[in-house]
Design a protein around this nucleic acid. Sequence first.
DNA 1: AGATATTTTGAATGAGCATTCAGCAAGGAT
DNA 2: ATCCTTGCTGAATGCTCATTCAAAATATCT
Lengths: 234, 234
Amino acid sequence: MNETLRDPKMRMAVKMRAGAAQKVVTEVEKKGRKASKETRRQQLIEATIDSLAKRGYAETTLADVADGAGLSRGIVNFHFESKENLLIATLQYMADEYANHWSSALEKAGDRAANRLWALVLADFDRKICTKRKLAAWCAFWGEAKSRPTYQALCGARDVKYQETVISLCAALKEEGGYSYAPEAMALAVCATLEGLWLRLMMGDGTTRENALAAAIEAIVALFPMHIARNGPK
Amino acid sequence: MNETLRDPKMRMAVKMRAGAAQKVVTEVEKKGRKASKETRRQQLIEATIDSLAKRGYAETTLADVADGAGLSRGIVNFHFESKENLLIATLQYMADEYANHWSSALEKAGDRAANRLWALVLADFDRKICTKRKLAAWCAFWGEAKSRPTYQALCGARDVKYQETVISLCAALKEEGGYSYAPEAMALAVCATLEGLWLRLMMGDGTTRENALAAAIEAIVALFPMHIARNGPK
DNA sequence: AGATATTTTGAATGAGCATTCAGCAAGGAT
DNA sequence: ATCCTTGCTGAATGCTCATTCAAAATATCT
């Protein structure tokens, strides 16, 4: 596919367009090999996410990633040594991005448990995180995670902290409000709901980001009626 | 792996063991080529589920499936024509089994909406359906579904009827009980919760079938407090 | 500028795998 | 017993892909 990219001149054009979009980074990159290396790695990771989203895990090839990045066939092995390493780096990148996103949302939300829970839910369906391509890439990894300890560890690490956070929020709300649930069970249910909605978004039945967010809100409003209303924490 | 299976005599031993476990079927199978063909297909589908669970979608090979079934390398193409067909048949089989399971649970539950919803939740975490190997196989397909229309259709078909059912149950309960939610959003949330719990079970963090069921119950008790208590529908 | 180090290329290599097919085995029919 | 049908086998084929590497391009240093 896209045979035009096999032509070096065409490739250069792609590279320059990409460069134009990040002018500042490019300036810094000119001097200093380290920066350049990181940039290239980043570029390849993005191309990997694209390929995972477009073709799925099983059909993702290094050739496709290289084409997507507008670079040559041997490039991945130069920067990542192996396909496996590239995929691990990609998952790592997504996991970090996700964790940073919800942690910073949590910080901004302040101290009240209701505000914090609300912020977590909104963060999960934020445009930055909740993209078709990224959801698809996540799901590609989930599909392989069970049989690959490395992926499992990276996906799992994502969840452990998140779920602990949700458990403590559920416990705090119970304390405040007089609910009767078991915090661990309720937290598991909340996390599962959010993940399940992601799965739905990805599967491409009619569900949209807005539907999903609405469903998530409906659920937490019903689960924590003393603390959360449809338009936000009380 | 398992080089012993390359030896025809060893294979025969495997075949006979498998045969012993289904003595009655074997008797019928002896006469009648059609029955035999179906049996063989079934056997290969089971081996495919095993392989998907053990090695993931990307690493599942026809050689592995054939070894798992105790048969020779060419066998899949003889019975299914191609790997793709085998995988589609496998997904089809799982989708049918799942649909039959919850439909019959629904029938047994009678007319009251609360009973029916409760039955659906229990059915999802039934030992027959909710096995490590089957969950793993489901997830393997989910991971590829976005980039393969055929899988998407089969996974999607699973959900459409299910979700319509849940929507109508939510609508009925709202009617009866005076909840204020939007039935579509609430149904989406309920379905997502159940699917998310499946995902969690599969990912092999500590979640067990019992934890997952407990979380699901906690959720629907909180979502439908007028109709459902922890020990069942009111 | 010239020399050196770094990054990139793309053709070659070889491994793994799905698929094919000529032939074997086991019944059943004549 | 012999033929025919059907199911099955496993070696051979050819294709796709990750990986390697010598050579080219480019950047950095002296």
